[in-house]
Each structure stands twice: as structure tokens, then as C-alpha cells.
Nucleic acid binder design. Structure first.
Lengths: 114, 114
DNA sequence: CGCATGGTTGGATTATTGTCAAACAATGGG
DNA sequence: CCCATTGTTTGACAATAATCCAACCATGCG
């Protein structure tokens, strides 16, 4: 069947600044967000590869990012794809994500594309 | 004598993004930063007034903000003045502080000036 | 000097958080 | 129907952090 399912995440207007900042105030989560920014939609497996943390730890980070409104997860079959809520974040906090991403990879596309 | 003394704080190039985000990912500290942005230089007493936290708690927050490179403290006599390191933050993470401050007070100068 | 003022420091406490490991769950393929 | 694949959930644990209270400290003033 391959039904597509969106995992629960906050509405745009319910995204809180402090929650977003707290979600991004962690090196691992910041790296995940940077990867998503560079690569677009990714599976949890790809996003969490070579992060230096256990699979379950990465999963917790996805939950944190999703609860904060930073990413959205959609499940297709066995695979869960995650992606940045770039438009929602831009609408709610203009310029915030861009400035953080710009600060994340100092020079250019620092992350080797998958 | 009234000697002026700067309390220790990190050099501009040593300011870390995750540290800044973590420092700002707290409602109390975010409010302090918003006040400093609105009012400029303030004493610790003024910055911490009506925050709903104990005097010593506010002091801990100043320390956190200073250690992260967000504010700078200079002592004149008995009084310690704190202010935003706006230029340093802008130089290191362009647009970051502005976007956060813009998201902090949604409409305009929300905080009643002292 | 003695004292009030303005902040910091040092526990103590309580709550969060980051992490791993192991078990679990859902899904699609043979 | 069983099994491998993909992630999540739960439990445990160590580290961090937010807070208050009390004590402290430096400073300027009388």
C-alpha cells in the first residue's frame, strides 16, 4: 500500500522561539539540521550516519527537533523521511534559520554531499 | 578612585555558536538580552528587576551570558554595568542576534523603557 | 571605622538532558 | 508466514542546569 503518514508536529504558529533555540543549541542536532539544509529530505538513517552517537540517540534528537518545530517527519513504508521546516521557520522567525545555518558551515557547503 | 574594570569574557573569535544558542535558549536570559537591546547599558539590578527570579539566579544568568560571549560586564565602583556585545556577535554570526531579537518582541518595543 | 548597597559565590535541591543498550514495533520481501 | 530492515521506546545513568537561600565581598558614604 505504501501509505504516507506525517508524524505529529506543532503548527507553525505554535513554534516557540526558545524551543527552537534550545533544539539548535546542541552540536549533534545542529549537524543534523545542517545536513538537512544541504541535502534536503533525508532518511533518518542517512541523517544520523557518522554522527558519533547511537541510533537511538539520533532518534531522540529527531524527536526533539520535531517537537520544537524544526523538522517534519513523514513515513513511507518502513522508511521515515525528515526535512527542515524552512518555510514555517522563515515565516515565524524571519532570518533566524539562515543566520544560524550560515554560522554553521563557516565557508561553504562544508558537508560532503551524500 | 572609581577604577573601571572589565570582567573576563571570551574573545570575539572564541564565541561559539552552540554556546550562544544555548545561552539564549532560556526565557529569563532572553528577556535580559531583550532589555539590554532596548535599553542599552544597564546595571545588573535594573536588568534583573521583575524577572521573577532571585537576585543570585539573575547573577548566574549574567555569568552564563558573559561566558557565552553575549554580554560584557564592566564594573565602576560598586555598580556593574552589562551590555550586549552586539558588534562582536554581528561580526561572528551576521544577522543572528537581529533575527532573534526581532522574534523576541513580536510587534515593537514591547518592554516598557526603564 | 561601621554600615548600607550592589552583586557574587557556595551549597543544596530539583529537574532536564544526552547517552547507550536492549527490547520492541511496523513494514515489506522472500 | 517468517525474517531482515528501519526506527522508536523504555530504562538506566551520568552530567548539566535552574533555582533558592545564606553567606560573603567590595565599595563608597557618613
Amino acid at each position: 500500500m505504501l501509505r504516507m503518514r506525517l508524524l505529529p508536529h506543532p503548527a507553525t504558529e505554535d513554534i516557540e522561539l526558545t524551543e527552537v533555540l534550545r533544539a539548535l543549541a546542541d552540536p549533534v542536532r545542529l549537524e543534523i539540521v545542517a545536513r538537512l539544509s544541504a541535502c534536503g529530505e533525508m532518511t533518518c538513517g542517512n541523517a544520523g550516519d557518522h554522527l558519533g552517537v547511537h541510533k537511538s540517540t539520533a532518534s531522540h534528537h529527531y524527536r526533539t527537533l520535531r517537537a520544537a518545530g524544526v523538522i517534519v517527519s513523514k513515513q513511507e513504508g518502513r522508511i521515515i523521511y525528515i526535512s527542515l521546516r524552512r518555510d514555517d521557520l522563515d515565516a515565524r522567525f524571519p532570518g533566524l534559520l539562515d543566520s544560524i545555518l550560515a554560522a554553521t558551515h563557516p565557508t561553504a557547503g562544508a558537508l560532503a554531499p551524500l
